[in-house]
Simulated scan of single mutants.
Amino acid sequence: MNRIVHGDNLSVLQGLEAESVELIYVDPPFNTGKRQSRKQMKTIRDEAGDRVGFGGRRYRTEVLAQQPAGTGYGDSFDDFLGFLRPRLLEAHRVLAPAGSLFFHIDYREVHYCKVMLDEIFGRECFQNEIIWAYDYGARATKRWPAKHDNILWYTKDPKRYTFNLNESDRIPYMAPGLVGAAKAARGKTPTDVWWHTIVSPTGKEKTGYATQKPLGILERIVRVHSNPGERVLDFFAGSGTTGVAAARHGRSFVMVDESAAAVAVMEKRLAHYAPRHERVTAAKRKKTSRAPASRRSPQ
């Protein structure tokens, strides 16, 4: 059954059965120290503009609307790892024996988060660091512009996990002339560097959620790392992109977020898939067996 759960994700995780989820994707706050909110913008052709587009054409950016002060969400933590650790311990507990966790973060925190995940899952269960590379947004002038995110892939078992590479989309060769016409037409499977544009600020995919991730990224993860009929969990669900990817490919989803604004976006976006709506508080959570503070050995 598809579910949208409004509540603290730690309480929700503690109420899930052990080994009941085949794939987990999470995109937690990045601890940027900023308040995340969405601007509505448009670009206008202007030779004196602040942006350069295709063919060297210049454009001017206009802000149409911005969320008022106090909305969005605060992305600053005194103890970021202390916030994440109990949630990821629960994620390890609820993950199925052949399941995978995808943890989406950026360059500021990825090193610390990887050490923590190595402790929880075991270094032998670390499979890949995927680099999502894009080319959009402001350009730094005092350092190389940061135009990538990091996605850490861990499995419950170091050797037994779902990886259906033949289900992946294919991408163009960077030098098609070197591989021949047939291979160039077919394309190749992706590597651990995924070039994919961000969600366009003015595109149809945009939902209004400040940190929405592209559907193409989530569809690749869902298709390759789960099977039809399995359950996909996102406990920092935001705009619900993980749920859309899961439902479009025959998986069920559990989307969790404590933000009423995020839940409202998901309810509208996922209505076609008839999810059950729930609200969970700490007082209502079910008692379940808990994982010990240290990591469990792979089964």
Rank of each mutant, 00 (worst) to 15 (best):
M1T: 00
I4Y: 06
V5N: 01
G7V: 00
S11D: 02
E17K: 13
S20K: 02
V26D: 00
P29W: 07
Q36H: 15
S37L: 07
K39G: 06
Q40V: 14
M41R: 15
T43L: 15
R45P: 12
D46W: 07
E47I: 14
A48V: 03
D50T: 13
R51Q: 12
V52W: 06
V52R: 14
G53H: 08
G55S: 01
A65P: 11
A65F: 15
Q66T: 15
G70P: 07
T71C: 08
G72T: 09
F80C: 05
F83L: 07
P86Q: 07
H92M: 11
A98T: 15
F102N: 00
I105L: 01
V110D: 04
H111G: 10
E119R: 04
E119F: 02
G122Y: 01
E124G: 12
I131N: 03
P145I: 06
D149C: 05
L152T: 03
T155E: 05
D157N: 15
Y161L: 06
N166P: 08
E167C: 14
R170Y: 03
R170P: 02
M174T: 14
G177L: 09
L178G: 02
G180M: 07
A185Q: 13
R186A: 12
G187M: 10
P190C: 00
D192I: 10
V193K: 01
T197I: 09
P201A: 07
G203I: 08
G203K: 08
K204S: 10
K206V: 04
Y209P: 01
K213G: 01
R220S: 10
I221F: 10
I221E: 01
S226Q: 05
G229M: 09
V232E: 05
F236R: 03
S239G: 07
G240Y: 07
G240T: 04
A246I: 11
A247N: 06
R251S: 02
V254K: 06
D257S: 09
E258T: 04
A260Y: 08
A261V: 12
L270G: 05
A274F: 14
A274D: 14
A274P: 09
P275D: 01
A282K: 10
R285S: 09
R285Q: 05
K287G: 02
T288V: 03
P292S: 11
A293N: 12
P298H: 09
